[in-house]
Structure formats: C-alpha cells, structure tokens
Design a protein around this nucleic acid. Structure first.
Lengths: 116, 116
DNA sequence: CGGAATCCCAGAAGATACTG
DNA sequence: CAGTATCTTCTGGGATTCCG
C-alpha cells in the first residue's frame, strides 16, 4: 500500500497540514463553504475569483480525498452536485477564520499606509 | 508607488493571508522560530529538513519584507545573523499552533489506519 | 559564516475545446 | 450543469558554484 502522503522526509505536522490546505484555492473554498454551508459547483465557480473549471474540479477532488469536504450528487436532469464541509473540514474553520481576520487587519493597515 | 501585493483580482483576506505564510517553508520557519525564540542562519538551515540556501535566504527575505520576522546582524568575524519573530509574526503563532495540533492528530489517525 | 548568482526543471496553474 | 481532456505557460523550488 503506497501512500502519496508519506515521503522520505521526516513528517512535520505543520508541513503536513499546509499540504492539505495549501495551493491557490483550498483555503478560499473552505472559507466560502463555511460561510454558505452548501454550494453547488456552478456557485463555487462564480464565487471563487477567476478559477477555471479544471482547477475547481481538481481542488474539490483533493479536498474530497482528504475528507475535508462532502460531495453529494443528485442524479437529475440537469445534474446537480452539492459541496459542503465535512466534520474534519470544519475543524479547520477556527484557524481559517483566525487567518481571515488577521489578513483583513493587515489589508486595512496597508491601505492606511498607502494613503499617507 | 507600485505594490507587488495588489493585483487586479479583488483582494480576499484569506487569500492575502495565505500568500504571506504559504509556500513550502514559511509555516515551518515561523514555527521553529517560535519554539526556539531565536535562531541563526546556520541553525535554521540545519533545522528545516532539506532546505537549500537559496530557498532559506529567499524565504527569510520575504518574511522580513512582510515584517513577520526580525533580522539582526552582528558585524563580527565570522559573521553572525540572528532571526526572531516580530510582534506581527507572533500574532500568527496561535493559529500555526492550532494547525500543528490538527496535523499531528491527523497523522496519528492515518498511522493507526495503516497498521490495520 | 551567511549568504549571492546561475542554471534548470517538475509541477502548478491557465486557456481552450468538448461531453454525458 | 458539472464536469473531462489537452495543450501550453509559468514559477516555485532544486542543484551547484562562488563570494566577502
């Protein structure tokens, strides 16, 4: 049983965690899923700025593999797929929320500086 | 006054924050600086697994630009440079700690699964 | 000791077109 | 609507060598 996760390098917990939520869109998607509870594919694609379908699909698949989100298909016409946070994914929210607030604060500080 | 930070895309706080602490080594370096308080260049290079001098220098420079760490040079022979967390950088510790604990927990869970 | 300077590449991300 | 499939581009990071 080979695992894509374990490499020869000793495993550092911070490193491990960053690999789950790193990349260009993972944090944002988790954040949006948290604030909206449930989102369809199309909604996500409109919500995440400039994301392509390829990256959206790929990112969602990775989050699903890591069991941070749930994917629920409705076999209808037209098709419908809903994404939501899993329990495990929800555990990350406090930290993303913290990060969000920190980022907001820094953005405001920079804004003030640029005005002067 | 051009800024490397602002692009045409609307600024999202989560995205902003991830850009400060994303990348392969930033989280780990902040984490190590927190647990050891102060570290020299050579110590960091030995502590962070497999990091090259190029990446170490580059990462430290970026963290310094964003004012998350302090760089203190001693003009001696041989030269000596110490790195430590800044106030702003220290604000990030609670959440990196959270992330660290989460990662540790997940690693343990995965370990158990692989044994079965 | 604490870097800087090059060269190079894998893998991340973008563009575009097509489909059940 | 919710994706696939390709192709291309870009850039974060690696390897190596040299410097004050």
């Amino acid at each position: 049983m080979k695992s894509k996760k374990s490499e020869t390098t000793q495993m550092c917990a911070v490193d491990y965690a960053f690999k789950r939520i790193g990349g260009k869109y993972k944090g944002m998607i988790l954040w949006y899923l948290h604030s909206k509870t449930v989102l369809r594919y199309g909604e996500l694609s409109r919500t995440v700025p400039n994301i392509t379908t390829k990256m959206l699909t790929q990112t969602l698949r990775e989050l699903e593999e890591d069991q941070l989100i749930n994917r629920k298909m409705f076999h209808e016409v037209p098709p419908k797929v809903e994404y939501s946070l899993s329990e495990k994914g929800r555990e990350l929210i406090p930290f993303i929320e913290y990060l969000h607030n920190w980022g907001k604060k820094q953005l405001e500080i920079e804004l003030l500086k640029n005005k002067s």
